[in-house]
Amino acid sequence: MASFVLVPGAGGMAWYWHRVAPLIRAAGHESIAVDLPGDDTQAGLAAYADIVVRGIAERSRVILVAQSLGGFTAPLVCARAPVRMVVFVNAMIPKPDETAGQWWGATSAIEAREQAATRRGYATEFDPGTYFLHDVSQDVLRAGPQRPREEAEIVFGEPCRFTRWPDIPIHVLAGRDDRFFPVEFQQRVARERLGKKVEEIPGGHLVALSNPEGLTEHLLACERGLTR
């Protein structure tokens, strides 16, 4: 049995994983959806890593799944806990000592997003409905929190203090319909920063909400590869 530790993106809400976690458990594994204090103006990456490491506790067969901004927490956790595999999901992939604020310019993320919007015919100006919620059903949204948790600025200015990625399997999953981090952009970043190819999944940036079955299927396939 593996322990899937699920790290959310901006806002830090464990609720993001509420459709994936039970599917992982139904497959015979443990799922731990971590809740992070995204709106705490005093809590940055180091605090996030502390929380995730405490959640892992004594577990040894850990698959760390990091969504979006959660990618900046992942290497800090890997340095402190027995992580067997990392799976990025529409994630920001950092370089050592980079801040999440620097990442946008270093990767040309905004330019890539706007170019994809122009090609595909939706608004280049960001709004949550267009870029995050376009493929998430209203039933799912109505069942969730009334207001998403905001992300405090502190996390974008704190360097990601790690030396190198560990020598473990790393998978990069990207939503084929992600408008926030278009799949072509994710392919380039994964290639340049990890030397990895992207595994595409139907769904947008919040794929755990829009396509939990498809995402879980990919996560379980990653775990099966670890046992071979």
Rank of each mutant, 00 (worst) to 15 (best):
T107C: 09
E125Q: 11
S137K: 04
A123N: 12
G121T: 03
T130A: 01
A123E: 12
F126G: 03
T130V: 04
D127K: 05
I110E: 10
L133G: 02
Y122E: 05
D139R: 15
P128F: 12
T118F: 14
W104A: 12
L133K: 09
R113N: 01
S137W: 03
Q138N: 14
G121L: 01
E125N: 15
F126V: 05
T107D: 06
R113S: 08
E111H: 15
R113P: 04
T124G: 01
A112L: 11
A109E: 08
D139I: 13
T124Y: 13
T124L: 06
R119M: 08
R120A: 10
H134G: 00
G129H: 13
T124S: 09
Y131E: 01
R119P: 00
I110Q: 12
G129K: 15
S108L: 10
A123R: 12
G129C: 01
V136G: 03
W104Y: 09
A123H: 06
A116E: 04
G121Y: 02
W104H: 14
A112E: 07
V136K: 00
F126L: 03
A116K: 00
R120L: 11
A112P: 08
Q138S: 06
T118G: 08
R119Q: 08
F132Q: 02
A109F: 12
P128G: 12
F126D: 03
